[in-house]
Amino acid sequence: MSGTAPWIALALCALVIDLAARRRGGSRAGLGSVVALLASRLPGRVALAALWVFAGIHLFARYTIPGR
């Protein structure tokens, strides 16, 4: 459990950054707007799509389920 603490902390950090950014800059300053900015050009879209496909294959096709 202690090993997962840094990941939980980073997830909480993301939540805090998103909320603070929205409070300061409105709805156009959250994580969604940063991702939209990345996706506004073709290389960014390809990178995001590749990251999404990699996550799916890594977690659901190439990852051993504990206990099986």
Binding site: L10, C13, A14, I17, A20, A21, R24, G25, R28, A29, L31, S33, V34, A36, L37, S40
Partner: peptide, 22 residues
């Protein structure tokens, strides 16, 4: 379409820092 200037610089820096930490 979002422009680079539409996302405030501190927000971009914060997310870049977070991505680097990950």
């Amino acid at each position: 379409r979002p422009r680079p200037g539409s996302v405030p610089r501190p927000v971009r820096v914060a997310w870049l820092t977070w991505s680097a930490a990950v």
